[in-house]
Design a protein around this nucleic acid. Structure first.
Length: 437
RNA sequence: GUGACUGUAGCUCAAUUGGUUAGAGCGCCGGCCUGUGGAGUCGGAGGUUGGGGGAUCGUGACCCCUCAGUCACCCCA
């Protein structure tokens, strides 16, 4: 290999600074700490309702999303990260979780064991123009409840979402609800809609004409003022629901009231994924700006079958972690974190040698952090580092202590010193237990 | 994919409507305050003004392209 010329080439070819791809932000400390705390809470809440985690590959065969999400949807038609692998297979970075979850459940015969409750947490990828609350790699938490056709499951799933969003004292959240009907009544409504809009399409936005062709229901969702009067005059979906769908929808509302979960019925939420039927819902917040939706979901009784599986009903939601974090942050929390952990301070090479194994022992036995700056500094500088680390204690070993066979344990909050025998066990015994943060 | 705005030290921002060696605060590193901390004080490092072209005697400032961010549309979490 002619490595020398190759190296030269590399230097000339990439003089630019390396940076993260567009719309794919890094998550750095201390922000990453907020992430893991939220994720822990999501897992806990899902598990309390009997949900278990599922992890699926980051990429799937492209066909899964085309069939599962719908060829005509924006996600599939223009937002997927699709590539060919070395064998020419078309693969796609998952743009959503529901289709992969169903695929995995089918592949491993999870439906044959009866009702199934799964949750997931992880990244999704959509090729969109980034803006606030919208990224090319974003992260979702969600649950899928399979095997129950009744309204109880809808409300179970909504309850989980609602608890997560409101659990931090967020007053701003709104739950919007709608029913899309099922395969019996929706076609009739679709037809009625088309007939209504057909007469006005010439006066409506260009976008509306596209929607009429691709998904007439989405006409209702147009924000173009030109379309507003025609939308207002459009027939209401609710009046077209068949008896079974109406009964289901009414029961969902009753259960929500029993659960004291406030909602508004919004006939305009129709959702952009093809697989939904009956209940659809969304949780929104003003603080998110234009990307107001923090959670969206609904029932998808036909999806499993359409992917080649048995006739298993399902209901679930997906929640945007970035957006939920934005909601939490907007309530402000400038609080200074409490002091925690120990700053180990060695003055001089010999003290350092003695302190290293003691620190190792502290780190093995305690959950709270033990910080150790290995550079030779003055005591003053070490204490400043301890403050920066927000350490509660300083463990100081200098030449005087070393000679006396002692070590100083300083409480940085109380500003008081104790002299202890120079021994890891004695130090541990003198420290209160500090648990995980 | 469409439209608009913005990119100057690690961070937040200056730089008299183009004019000499681009500054400040915070942060960082170091000295002093004889081994006891969020302070003070003195000093230091750190910028090819996102990148590339162009116009000009000359620009961080003007024009074009590009990259990135932000806001809205589209769509969605």
């Amino acid at each position: 290999m002619a490595s020398a010329p190759l190296q030269r080439t590399v230097v000339h070819v990439m003089p630019e600074k390396l940076s993260a791809p567009r719309g794919a932000p890094d998550i750095l400390p201390p922000e990453s700490g907020r992430w893991s705390a939220l994720e822990a809470r999501m897992r806990a809440i899902a598990e309390r309702s009997g949900y278990q985690e599922i992890r699926t590959p980051l990429f799937e065969s492209t066909e899964l999303f085309v069939r599962g999400v719908g060829e005509e949807t924006d996600i599939v038609s223009k937002e997927m990260y699709t590539f060919a692998d070395r064998a020419g297979r078309s693969l796609t970075l998952r743009p959503e979780w529901t289709a992969p979850v169903v695929r995995a459940a089918l592949e491993h015969h999870l439906f044959s064991a009866g009702p199934l409750r799964l949750y997931y947490i992880g990244p999704i990828f959509r090729y969109e123009r980034p803006q606030k609350g919208r990224y090319r790699q974003s992260h979702q938490f969600g649950v899928e409840c399979f095997g129950f056709a009744g309204p109880e499951a809808d409300v179970e799933v909504i309850s989980i979402a609602w608890e997560l969003v409101t659990g931090y004292g967020i007053a701003d959240a709104t739950l919007s609800l709608n029913s899309l009907g099922d395969e019996r009544c929706r076609p009739r409504y679709r037809q009625a809609l088309l007939e209504h809009f057909d007469r006005h399409l010439g006066a409506m936005s260009e976008d509306a004409r596209v929607r009429a062709r691709r998904n007439p229901l989405r006409l209702l969702d147009s924000k173009d003022p030109a379309d507003a009067p025609f939308i207002a005059a459009a027939p209401a979906l609710e009046s077209f629901l068949c008896d079974a769908c109406r009964e289901h929808f009414d029961a969902v509302k009753v259960y929500l009231e029993l659960a004291k979960i406030p909602y508004v019925v919004d006939p305009r939420i129709v959702r952009g994924l093809d697989y939904y039927d009956r209940t659809v819902f969304e949780i929104t917040s003003r603080v998110l700006g234009a990307q107001s939706s923090v959670c969206g979901g609904g029932r998808y009784d036909g999806l499993v079958r359409s992917l080649g599986g048995p006739d298993v009903p399902g209901v679930g939601f997906a929640m945007g972690i970035e957006r939920l974090l934005m909601m939490l942050r907007s309530r402000g929390e400038p609080e200074v974190p409490a002091r925690r952990g120990i700053q180990a301070i060695a003055l001089g090479a010999q003290a350092r040698t003695v302190l290293v194994p003691i620190v190792a022992e502290l780190r093995r036995r305690r959950e709270a952090p033990t910080f150790f700056d290995y550079d030779e500094r003055k005591l003053l500088a070490h204490l400043k580092i301890a403050d920066r680390n927000r350490a509660r204690y300083a463990l100081i070993l200098g030449t005087a202590e070393l000679a006396a066979g002692e070590i100083v344990l300083r409480d940085l909050e109380l500003r008081s010193d104790r002299r202890l025998p120079l021994d890891a066990a004695r130090v541990l015994a003198a420290l209160p237990v500090e648990g995980a943060s």
